[in-house]
Design a protein around this nucleic acid. Structure first.
Lengths: 239, 239
DNA sequence: TGACAATTCAAACAAATGTTTTAAATATGT
DNA sequence: ACATATTTAAAACATTTGTTTGAATTGTCA
């Protein structure tokens, strides 16, 4: 069926080939994030981009390729704007690195703009994974996961086994993602909850404190010699 | 346009009107949970139910009403099979009630059958809320939320303010939902993680211990008199 | 300017899908 | 058994949607 296909893919593979291509990427990012891949229509995307219906197929080949391009680009932008280490060196205290990790993650998800759109797209990928998810996990999520694991391992102490590190990592990430993934329910349950920058800061505080408390407890549980050390119960002046 | 419409809705409002209606509900539950409301086709549902294409409209009016019926029914079944208190009386120690809450929630989500389907449907509702979400929040989620809040409040002590209770409640629920909501990523990151009943138990253990450690810390932070009470640090023989 | 490639555009195509219609089949009550 | 209501079935309808087509337009370089 592709005998008559000469070259529908754009001759210029990537970059800023033209304004239409970028408008398309921008509009597609918005529409995909708003209604998801399936519900998004190329007509809606093209209209928002001020382009013709055939523009998607001309510049990207088909709708799915456009989606992959959007996902890749939004991922790049989000990580560039809010790097996971938030500028902290690896030698910084693990408590601070955890705080920075949590805050950067929350900002990446909740601050408006293309970074937030990436969060929306990823949330949809969780529910309905596309072929693009494998690449995202490999290039974005796994590096982030090992980075967090290192922080957690430093906090748990050397005697913590890998399973505990993994479980605790997930306990931390879960708290970050919850407000985003369950936003429709959170909004209905607690309409007073907002996501202003200040509120994001307070949220990062809570998640960090909640997690550090648990991690310090786990750490003390492993190294029995430290069990009655009162230092591990007080936490809050670590910055 | 509805002048010629006489009575497309079923004369028997609910209950076990006929085998076809139930087959439809069953098949629709499976298909909706698998591919979501939008991607599910009434043709696929009817085929799986062994019914004619027109059966959906005859018995439920339209596709959306069928979806609402599925959501309502799956919610009923899930809560009936795994009640949030897991048979524990309200006078039981808060630690035990928390453990029961976590375990029942995890089982509701991960054990197969109609109960798990409800979890799938709810996950999709989070990402793409339908009109049915308001009812679910009112009748299912909010009661569950106040129940958890009571447990958390008991653990935090009387001096904890509402905001802390709310935040800690979310920290607990988030850990429960994470493995479910982010399953595609978890599977790719840690293929060794399974969700057998035993693993679910261990997961419930971790979440409960992690949360109790943090909550006891918060509690001690508020009531400074309890700070050095060693009871709040040891927890692990609660069954 | 003129030829050639790249891009845009309007129209149409083909497939999928929710819904309706009309008739046949089945059950129900007398 | 007959009449009536209920349910099922096949076909068609109307709309949406991703994609293609071929002409028109624009840009580029000699």
């Amino acid at each position: 069926m592709c005998l008559t296909m000469v070259e529908t893919v754009p001759p210029t593979p990537a970059g800023d080939s033209g304004p239409t291509r970028e408008h398309l990427l921008e509009a597609a990012g918005t529409v995909f994030a708003e209604v998801g891949f399936r519900a998004a229509t190329v007509r809606a995307i093209c209209q928002q981009a001020g382009a013709n219906v055939a523009a998607v197929n001309y510049h990207f080949g088909d709708k799915e390729a456009l989606y992959a391009a959007v996902l890749k680009e939004s991922c790049r932008v989000a990580l560039e704007k809010f790097p996971p280490d938030a500028g902290l060196p690896p030698e910084a205290p693990a408590e601070n690195r955890l705080r920075a990790f949590v805050q950067a993650f929350l900002q990446r998800i909740f601050s408006g703009g293309p970074s937030a759109r990436h969060g929306q797209l990823m949330a949809r990928e969780m529910i309905e994974p596309t072929a693009a998810l494998d690449g995202i996990v490999r290039e974005e999520i796994r590096p982030m996961s090992v980075r967090l694991s290192e922080i957690i391992r430093a906090l748990l102490g050397p005697s913590a086994n890998e399973e505990t590190v993994r479980r605790c990592s997930m306990s931390v990430v879960s708290q970050i993602l919850f407000y985003h993934h369950c936003r429709p329910v959170v909004n209905r349950l607690f309409p007073e909850v907002t996501f202003t920058p200040e509120e994001i800061d307070r949220l990062a505080d809570h998640i960090t404190r909640f997690s550090l408390a648990a991690l310090h407890h786990f750490s003390a549980e492993n190294d029995t010699e430290r069990r009655d050390n009162p230092n591990f119960a007080s936490q809050g002046d670590h910055d």
